[in-house]
Design a protein around this nucleic acid. Structure first.
Lengths: 134, 134
DNA sequence: CTCTGTGCAAAGCGTTTGCAAACGA
DNA sequence: TCGTTTGCAAACGCTTTGCACAGAG
């Protein structure tokens, strides 16, 4: 019984080979677009359909198994649901990285100014990664 | 000579009545979706085409006159380009508000951890606005 | 007067849906 | 076995494009 199979079942998702592969790809590469996933899965399942990717992404989002990350000036990527964190996007190579920052104080300040009851904060930094700075 | 006409020309955009109206709507309502804009402009120009809205939004973005705001779990809205700021979205009534916060310290921290050269930070809070809390 | 913008219709593209066959539990 | 998932094809909805006419400068 493999880890991805268990992980899928924990989220009430049947462990089909296609789903295990999507999970593996997201776990390994961190952040992938629909197109990325389609290309990767085609290597393993030559006749896989884009519809299968979409159906699975949608049901995985519904079951809180994965999350969509909206990126300024670029298409969305998807990631396995983990502890709350922020993102960094390289404007050069388009790589997306996670970063854990404490946004508590900021949220409190925002709440005080706006009188919103704040439930979540979505933060994406854009810049140039270390490799692309060279 | 009206203000919106001047503002458009400052950004190298010809001041057509349609563009003046888009500018007026964004200035007045702050954040509008394509659909919002289409509905509003139809009141003034009954035969306006969606293509005109799209063409103008795109050229206005290219000329840095307006900006797209990507919102988690919702469609994008557009706003006039102003000083850098963050956003609050009400999960109930979907209203979008601006908030100016100092993200300098956070950006420096993120840069130190990630070794990214950070150029901008995009922050969207989700929550419940004051009116919807009642 | 010249060049750009508008409105319309058609095309394009990413995403969703319906269905029969295959598959997981 | 039963209900769910897959792959295919068609449908859908949002966005873009091409073109002729209208309008801004």
């Amino acid at each position: 019984m493999n880890t991805y199979t268990d992980l899928l079942r924990l989220h009430n998702l049947k462990a089909t080979p296609q789903r295990v592969e999507i999970t593996y790809a997201l776990d390994t590469y961190g952040h992938l677009s629909i197109e990325n996933l389609y290309e990767m899965l085609r290597n393993k399942f030559s006749s896989i359909s884009l519809a299968t990717i979409y159906k699975n992404i949608n049901i995985m989002i519904e079951n809180a198994f994965i999350q969509e990350v909206k990126i300024p000036h670029a298409k969305s990527v998807y990631e396995l649901t983990k502890a709350t964190h922020s993102h960094l996007v390289c404007e050069e190579c388009k790589k997306v990285e996670d970063i854990t920052l404490d946004l508590q104080n900021l949220s409190v300040t925002a709440s005080q100014y706006s009188h919103f009851q704040i439930n979540s904060a979505n933060l994406v930094f854009s810049g140039i990664c270390q490799e692309c700075q060279k």
